[in-house]
Design a protein around this nucleic acid. Sequence first.
DNA 1: GGGCATAGTAAGTAATCACTTACTTTAGAA
DNA 2: TTCTAAAGTAAGTGATTACTTACTATGCCC
Lengths: 217, 217
Amino acid sequence: MPRARTRISGEDRRRQIIDVALELFARQGFKGTTTRQIAQHARVNEALIFRHFPHKEALYWAVIADKCRKTRGCEELQKKLEGAEDPREVFTWLAGEVLRRNREDTGRSRLLLYSALENHRLSQRFFRTHIAGYYELLADYIRARIRDGVFRDVDPALAARGFLGMLFYHFLIQELFGGKRYHHFDPEKVGATLADIWLEGMLTANGRSARKPAQTP
Amino acid sequence: MPRARTRISGEDRRRQIIDVALELFARQGFKGTTTRQIAQHARVNEALIFRHFPHKEALYWAVIADKCRKTRGCEELQKKLEGAEDPREVFTWLAGEVLRRNREDTGRSRLLLYSALENHRLSQRFFRTHIAGYYELLADYIRARIRDGVFRDVDPALAARGFLGMLFYHFLIQELFGGKRYHHFDPEKVGATLADIWLEGMLTANGRSARKPAQTP
DNA sequence: GGGCATAGTAAGTAATCACTTACTTTAGAA
DNA sequence: TTCTAAAGTAAGTGATTACTTACTATGCCC
């Protein structure tokens, strides 16, 4: 009584295994996920996994590499930063984007955190691909605004880190620590509020008056 | 040839096992740590662990409960907030404290993150003990300053979250993602800078002039 | 100094782990 | 239609897992 299972191409099967593994690794970490589990969720024999990947760790690498590749780079941010007229618009938009992305792709953030905690060799690369680029771009933009006299003179890398920190931490508490059970926040408002605090903390009198010229007597 | 090992009281042994387990759970997570490893590090027979704890999970609970208990509560913060004259002093001090504590007790933060990711039932309680209390206190203080007209009118819970987020995220990147390999930050400066950005973002003109009366013509 | 509660251990257990081997089934080119 | 490369699987492997059992050693009180 042979299985009526459809036979698909190696490439497709490989992709499917990666997708299934991503979900499980993100939810349970590397150690917490068994190859048997992955096979069951993919509805294939466990041996098939080892046909596509020499060992579990190789599958983990493939999952992370896949996430790295799939993530559209910083082009969108770069474009927004280049064609930016008002810093407020930029940072409010960015805050919304960061929050939305974390909310929509929780798996990415969990995978990233797990790989950092479990100290996988790839976690550093994963981090560089997903975060470091973003915040170097941001730091450059901040540096330029400091030169313009729009922002106050603080360490640009630190300022960028502070901005992203506010947003990521909010996600951490809401999604990971079950914060949303006790307090529901309107995502729009969260992004706007946090961006506002940060911006008001960064803008100089000049930077402020560029938008509201009436403020300077 | 009997072991020359000293025999210590059950209570002491229990404490020792918890200490050893804490370190391993913090480094490798629950799933990543084996009872055998714990026994070897504690230099006792594995069976002894199960004399003190019915199962591995009970040991994990004990470890987390111990961390919760050992952490001195929010009294220090509360005292500081009550006897506070200048918000700047309070937040700069707090920033330094948060950074110092994370740096000195990395295990606590790792354990907290792991328990959140691994979705242990205790993680919520762990979180409440370690973070929520802090930031409710902080939110209360912020709410009072808003009423005073010292801070701008923003959601106090969100503002508190933003403040702690800046600091915790900095720790995350430096310690977990190996940020300190690429860029070393002076802890003093980090705390002062981040607190400064946040404060300047929160203070009203009134709040500012309370310290610098010359600023208002 | 003898009795005994308990600290401590050696040597297991069944289940599960990542991974292999030896085999069968199928799609598509010829 | 036949042949074959590759998709797919059943049934293992030894190592490791959390946890037990049956035992010995030791400090302490009388």
